[in-house]
Nucleic acid binder design. Structure first.
Length: 552
RNA sequence: GUCCCUGUAGCUCAGAUGGACAGAGCAACUGCCUUCUAAGCAGUGGGUCGCGGGUUCGAAUCCCGCCAGGGACUCCA
């Protein structure tokens, strides 16, 4: 990438300045190069002289001059200038920029990829909603975030595995089974009371009815414990299928659906427990077995196995992460959790430490809450009470593309207001259509070129000299840098902004520059340009999981 | 009480890990369709970056203290 190349050349210049005695032999700061906001400051800029000034005991502007003077000749760089109080600005050569069009065309769908991950195995575990009810809007946000992050990491050279952890064990599941059994009996006209902390949502009644229509009343005729378990199994499967369908509607898919129960059946639980026990992190107290997280700096210890003998979700998590890192060998694991799990982050890191895993290898992203509004009406989302807006409803109203784009525009850290009315009403003006429209416009130009039989494969990109054309190329060059940044920061919300900027620059170009014109040479050059833009736009969209339409 | 997230234009939000005059989209206002898609383009107005200190060449960004909103602190997940 050109950005890295400039940084490297700048570092070379700094070292040479040191050997020549223009700069004292102090430790050099990282020679970072960034994109200035103001185009007048060139394509890239470095503030390194400002950072060096103190240690070198020199005027930053003087340092900047020395570095600029010693900056080696490079085919990519038109000029290197200095600006007060000590910036170095780099401007790219037009003919180098033009060549990038050919290079994007030859890379095609690979354009934007970077080799940051070096093939390292990364797991992204996300959604992982208890299969006790339908997916709601907040889960949808995490789902879109996770799937996009997985796409970015894969573009950045990681081997990515997308995983959904199915909590098919534990007390919540038990409550779900009992609730379902009760609804089942009720639907058959048999009196039955819902469990105390049962799942009261109307969907449970639908689920019970559905099972009756498919399987009849056979579960009512067996002993209740057996019925709860057998009916539960059917209900779980149905719930999972429906969750899977909901997720597919916003184009979220998984490589692995991992069963919590399998941790207990497969021996992972025992092996993991042994490790933390051997490490001295397990203690028995008050009839329960505790994880001594205080030994790792936590505020308090946590129960692993209740006095009843039933393991807690934490015990499962110990086994699960043991499995992720030590058995399946992921180099890095990213968990995406909802805001309500935020308090567990440091505990989970402690678990990793106790297992002997460097905690940095586990990254936990908290996706903040989504508040649904319908005008002034705030809809509280709770699965228990059953008053909820499902993801399915949202996608049906807003559409998968707008939904994904909208979710992605907010950083995971900030809570978001999702106003259903607004989302629907603005759907025509939604930025996602603006971006897609740019793509469709290009498709339309390319169709015209094809109708006229124009073969632009030998187009001469050196004809692309005007400002709108070069601006477009400059913007396209940003994609790989962006992929790298997002893969590093795990903050995919920059993607929709980039897509929008690229679309803006394209629309401006479109207005000013006729592509298919009587000037056949210019037409061919611009067809190449436009075609590269289409590739770039499509790539950005596909990483976000948004479609790139040919017509609109 | 303790911990986490947030507070930037009328509204919804960016601001890429400290840089050069604080941005976008909606909303408001003014122009632009005989040429490849007007779901578009060009332009105008709009800001004590929650408040108060500090760190430094330089702070929306880092530190401390307040204020406000949300979340978490269970032998629930």
């Amino acid at each position: 990438m050109i950005k890295e190349r400039i940084a490297k050349l700048l570092e070379d210049a700094a070292r040479e300045a040191q050997t020549k005695g223009h700069l004292p032999n102090v430790a050099l700061p990282e020679m970072t190069v960034e994109r200035p906001q103001n185009a007048e400051h060139g394509d890239y800029a470095s503030a390194a002289p400002l950072k060096l000034a103190r240690a070198a005991r020199m005027n930053p502007l003087t340092i900047a001059r020395h570095l600029a003077d010693l900056f080696p000749q490079a085919e990519e760089i038109e000029r290197v200038t200095v600006a007060p109080p000590g910036f170095i600005n780099f401007t790219l050569k037009d003919d180098w920029l033009e060549k990038q069009v050919d290079s994007i065309l030859s890379l095609g769908q690979e354009y934007g990829n970077v080799d940051l991950g070096k093939g390292g195995k990364v797991q992204v575990e996300f959604v992982s909603v208890n299969p006790t009810g339908p997916i709601h809007v907040g889960h949808g946000r995490g789902a879109v975030l996770g799937s996009t992050l997985a796409n970015v990491l894969s573009a950045a050279g990681h081997k990515v595995s997308r995983e959904y952890y199915v909590n098919d064990a534990g007390s919540q599941m038990d409550s779900f089974y009992r609730s379902l059994y009760s609804r089942y009996l009720q639907a058959l006209g048999i009196e039955s009371e819902m469990p105390a902390n049962g799942y009261m949502g109307a969907y449970m009644i639908d689920l019970a009815r559905e099972i009756i229509s498919e399987e009849g009343r056979r579960f009512a005729e067996m002993p209740s414990e057996e019925a709860v378990s057998k009916l539960g199994k059917v209900g779980l499967q149905k719930m999972l299928t429906s969750i899977k369908e909901d997720l597919e509607r916003i184009r979220v898919e998984f490589d692995v659906w991992f069963s919590e129960r399998s941790l207990y059946d497969g021996g992972q639980y025992e092996r993991a427990m042994k490790i933390i026990k051997d490490g001295g992190f397990v203690r028995e107290r008050e009839g329960a077995i505790w994880f001594v997280s205080t030994a790792l700096g936590e505020d308090k210890d946590n129960v692993l196995v209740r006095s009843s003998g039933a393991p807690t979700y934490l015990a499962s998590d110990v086994a699960y992460h043991y499995n992720k890192f030590l058995e399946r060998g992921f180099d890095e694991v990213i968990n995406i959790w909802g805001a309500d799990h935020q308090g567990h982050v440091s505990r989970m890191k402690a678990v990793a430490s106790a297992l002997g895993i460097a905690p940095e290898r586990l990254q936990i992203i908290i996706s903040q809450m989504v508040t649904l509004r319908q005008g002034d009406l705030v809809l509280k989302v709770s699965k228990r009470t059953g008053e909820l807006i499902t993801l399915r409803e949202l996608v049906d109203e807003v559409g998968a593309d707008a939904c994904r784009f909208f979710f992605l525009t907010r950083s995971a850290d900030s809570q978001m207001d999702f106003d259903l009315e607004l989302a629907k009403r603005q759907s025509e003006d939604n930025p996602v259509y603006y971006v897609q429209y740019a793509h469709a416009r290009i498709a339309s130009i390319l169709r015209l070129a094809q109708e006229r039989g124009i073969d632009f494969s030998a187009g001469d990109v050196s004809l692309l000299k005007t400002e709108p054309e070069l601006t477009l190329i400059r913007k396209m060059l940003l994609l790989p840098e962006l992929v790298e940044t997002v893969a590093l920061t795990l903050e995919p919300h920059h993607l929709p902004y980039y897509a929008q900027e690229l679309a803006t620059v394209f629309h401006a170009f479109y207005k000013q520059c006729r592509v298919v014109s009587p000037d056949i040479h210019m037409s061919k050059a611009r067809l190449k340009l436009v075609s590269a833009v289409q590739i770039t736009l499509a790539r950005a969209l596909s990483i976000m999981g948004v479609t790139a339409p040919e017509h609109m």
